[in-house]
Design a protein around this nucleic acid. Structure first.
Length: 595
RNA sequence: GGUCCGGUAGCUCAGUUGGAUAGAGCAGCAGCCUUCUAAGCUGCGGGCCGCGGGUUCGAAUCCCGCCCGGAUCACCA
C-alpha cells in the first residue's frame, strides 16, 4: 500500500531533516483533492513543532527530500500547509501489472480463527416477509459476505420464531373461518395464506373489543377479556402441554409458511448455514435462571417471579420468569445465546436486529455477564434503522405493509418496462430476458437498501426507489455490461490482452484516476468489514463506475492505434469489471453481460 | 422524565474518523448519439452542515448546553 510506504519514507525525511524520529502514523496522508495537482497529500501542520519553521518551507523541504529519495514520488507542489505529491506512473502501472488478473484482488484468505456467528432475518411465522425484513436480510447477508472477504470464518444463522401467541392467533382464525383452505387449494403462497388469518384475527378481535366497550367495559379490561384473545391464549397453553391436535395444526401451518419463506429467500438470494427454531430453544433459558438463582445474581419475588436487578448499572429490574414459571423473550434469548456459544465458540456473536431492540441487547449482555459469561463481551448487536414509507410506518397487523414478494415482482416489472422503452435486446430468448429483468430489478432494490448507512432510518418511496439512473444498482450493472461489450468485441478480433508485459508509457489522467480507485479497493473492503457497512462498497462501486464511464467517454479503446495502450485499456476495463463484480457481489448484486 | 440514534442542497443520501473553496444522485435548465451500449457523458443554478458556546494553526466531524424528529425504558416479541 502506497500510504504506508510513503509514511516510512516521510519518517526518514523528517529524521534526516530535523533529527527527530516520528512514528509513521503521525503522518496524515490523504488523497489530493481533484482541483489540485498531485495524487497524495501530506498535511504538514502537525510537523511544524519539529521543523520549527513555517508550513511552506517545511513542506518544501520535505517535498524536496521525497523527490530525491523516494522512487514513487515524481514531483511535488505546496499550497498553504499541504504538500501535494505526484506519484510516478510507474508505481500505478506496476500495481496494474501485478493485480489486474488477480481473481482474489481485495479479498483476504481465510484466517484460522474462531468463526463469527451472525444472526439475521429472524422471522415470525404468522405473517409474510415485508420491506423491513428485506433490509434486515440484505444487511445480514451482505455483512456476512464482507466479513468472509476479510478472512473471517462466518456462520450465518437464522432464528425462526415459530411459536407463541401470534402464531396461535393465525391458527385460531384459520380454524374458525378458514374453511379448510390450503396453499395448494387456493394457489396462494403459504406464508401469505397464514398472514391473511393473522390480519383477520386482529380485525375480529378489534370488533369484539369495541363491542365489550360498548357494553360498558373499561377499554383496558376489554382488550384483555375479548373471547378471541382468551381462546388464543388457551390454544397456546395447549400447545405448551403438547396437545396433539394443536401441535398438528401448528406443524401444518408452519410448513406452509416455510415453503413460502423459502421462495422469498431464494428470490432475494439469501441463505443460511443453520436455522434455529424457537420451539426447540425457548425453554433453554430456564436452566440459566436456575443457575443465576443459585449464584444469587437473580432474585425471586413473593409471587414467584424471577428478576435480575440492574439498578446499580443505571437500568431497571428485568423479569426473567413469570410467576407461573413461564419464560419471556429475554429468557429465551439468554438460552439461545448460550446454545450458540456452545455450538460455535465464536469470536463474535452478531445479531442483525432493528434499533428498537437496543435496550434488549444491552440488558442481555449485562445479565450474561452477571451469570459469569465473559463471552458476553463478544456479543454485538448490529442495529439498523427502520424503513419508513412516505405515508408513515408500516403496520403489519393491519396489513399495511410493503410485501417482500410484491416488491421484488414490481422491481422486475419495472426493469422490463424500462428495457422495452429503450428497445434493448430484442434478440434475447424469453428465458434470457426474464433472467435479466430479475437481475436488474433486484439490483436496483438491493443497491437502494444497502447504499444507506445501516444505522440510519431510511425512507422508502416506491416511486423514486425504482429509478434506474444515477446512483443506482442498474447504473453499475450498465457500466459492467458496457465493458463486457467492448471485451466481447476484442475477443471477436482475436485480441489477447491479459498476458502483457509491464507497460511502460505515461498514463492518461483518466487511466490514472481509474487505477487509483482500483488501488484503493482492498482498503474499502477492509473498512466495510471494520464498520459492518455494505454502504462503503456501494459508494465505491458507484464512484468506480462513474470514473470508468468518463474514461470510456474520453478515450477510445479498440481504436487506439498504439497496441500496447490498447491492450492496457482492455486489461484495465477487464480489471474494472471484475472489481465491480467483486464489490457488488458482496452486496448480493449480480452484473449482466449485456443490458 | 432517563437512555440511545439521527438532523448536511427542494427530495434521497455521501463526507475516508480533525484538514484545502462541504460532495453525489434525483428533480430543474442547457448541450452531446454517422464513432467501442445515450440505463451514458458535459455544463449551469441550488447550502446559516438544526441553533449557541467551547477546544486549536484548522470543526459538518471532538466537548458542553439547547431545539426538532425517531426509538426505547412491558409479566409483548
Amino acid at each position: 500500500m502506497i500510504e504506508t510506504l510513503l509514511a516510512n519514507e516521510l519518517s526518514n525525511a523528517v529524521e534526516a531533516l530535523y533529527g527527530q524520529q516520528l512514528s509513521t502514523d503521525t503522518f496524515q496522508i490523504q488523497k489530493t483533492r481533484p482541483e489540485f495537482e498531485g495524487d497524495l497529500t501530506v498535511v504538514v501542520f502537525p510537523l511544524l513543532r519539529i521543523s520549527r519553521k513555517a508550513p511552506e518551507p517545511t513542506a518544501n523541504e520535505i517535498g524536496g527530500y521525497m523527490v530525491e529519495h523516494s522512487a514513487e514520488v515524481e514531483s511535488f507542489n505546496v499550497i498553504k500547509g499541504f504538500l501535494n505529491l505526484l506519484i510516478a506512473d510507474a508505481y500505478y502501472l506496476r500495481f496494474y501489472h501485478e493485480k489486474h488478473a488477480d481473481m482474489a484482488f481485495g479479498f483476504q484468505p481465510e484466517k484460522d480463527e474462531p468463526p463469527v456467528v451472525i444472526e439475521y432475518s429472524s422471522p415470525n411465522t404468522n405473517k409474510p416477509l415485508h420491506l423491513g425484513h428485506i433490509r434486515n436480510n440484505l444487511l445480514g447477508w451482505s455483512v456476512a459476505e464482507i466479513l468472509k472477504a476479510n478472512g473471517k470464518k462466518v456462520a450465518k444463522v437464522n432464528l425462526v420464531n415459530d411459536r407463541g401467541i401470534h402464531i396461535c392467533k393465525s391458527m385460531l382464525a384459520w380454524q374458525k373461518w378458514g374453511k379448510g383452505k390450503t396453499p395448494e387449494g387456493t394457489g396462494k403462497k403459504g406464508d401469505k395464506l397464514v398472514g391473511d388469518y393473522y390480519v383477520l384475527f386482529d380485525k375480529e378481535y378489534k370488533k369484539e373489543v369495541a363491542k365489550l366497550i360498548g357494553q360498558g367495559m373499561p377499554k383496558d379490561e376489554a382488550t384483555h377479556q375479548a373471547p378471541l384473545l382468551l381462546e388464543a391464549k388457551a390454544m397456546l397453553k395447549k400447545w405448551e402441554t403438547g396437545d396433539q391436535e394443536v401441535r398438528a395444526l401448528w406443524k401444518k401451518m408452519n410448513a406452509w409458511v416455510y415453503s413460502g419463506f423459502d421462495k422469498t429467500y431464494a428470490r432475494l438470494g439469501i441463505d443460511f448455514d443453520k436455522t434455529y427454531y424457537e420451539s426447540d430453544t425457548y425453554l433453554l433459558g430456564k436452566a440459566l435462571v436456575e443457575e443465576g438463582l443459585k449464584k444469587g445474581v437473580l432474585f425471586k419475588k413473593d409471587d414467584g417471579s424471577v428478576w435480575c436487578d440492574l439498578k446499580d448499572e443505571g437500568l431497571d429490574e428485568k423479569l426473567l420468569l413469570r410467576g407461573d414459571g413461564t419464560s419471556v423473550y429475554m429468557t429465551q434469548d439468554l438460552g439461545t445465546a448460550q446454545l450458540r456459544y456452545t455450538d460455535y465458540k465464536p469470536q463474535k456473536l452478531m445479531y442483525v436486529v432493528g434499533n428498537e431492540q437496543i435496550y434488549h441487547f444491552d440488558v442481555l449482555k449485562r445479565i450474561l455477564k452477571k451469570l459469569g459469561r465473559n463471552w458476553a463481551d463478544d456479543i454485538l448487536h448490529l442495529s439498523y434503522g427502520m424503513v419508513e414509507l412516505p405515508e408513515g410506518k408500516m403496520k403489519s397487523r393491519e396489513g399495511k405493509v410493503v410485501d417482500a414478494d410484491d416488491l421484488m415482482e414490481e422491481m422486475a416489472r419495472t426493469a422490463k418496462k424500462t428495457s422495452d422503452e429503450l428497445g434493448k435486446f430484442d434478440d434475447f430468448t424469453p428465458e434470457e430476458s426474464r433472467n435479466l429483468y430479475e437481475m436488474i430489478g433486484l439490483g436496483a432494490l438491493k443497491y437502494f437498501m444497502l447504499k444507506v448507512d445501516p444505522k440510519k432510518t431510511m425512507m422508502f418511496n416506491p416511486a423514486e426507489s425504482i429509478d434506474f439512473n444515477g446512483n443506482t444498482g442498474p447504473f453499475i450493472q450498465y457500466t459492467h455490461a458496457r465493458i463486457q461489450s467492448v471485451l466481447r468485441k476484442a475477443k471477436a478480433e482475436g485480441l489477447v490482452f491479459n498476458e502483457q508485459k509491464m507497460p511502460a508509457f505515461s498514463l492518461h489522467k483518466k487511466e490514472k484516476a481509474l487505477l487509483k480507485m482500483l488501488h484503493n479497493f482492498p482498503q474499502v473492503v477492509q473498512l466495510a468489514g471494520d464498520t459492518f457497512s455494505p454502504a462503503q462498497l456501494a459508494n465505491f462501486s458507484f464512484e468506480l463506475s462513474k470514473e470508468y464511464n468518463q474514461f470510456y467517454h474520453e478515450l477510445s479503446i479498440l481504436k487506439e492505434p498504439d497496441e500496447n495502450k490498447k491492450f492496457f485499456r482492455l486489461g484495465l476495463s477487464d480489471f474494472t469489471a471484475r472489481t465491480l463484480g467483486s464489490a457488488m457481489g458482496l452486496l448480493g448484486i449480480r452484473l449482466p453481460e449485456r443490458m
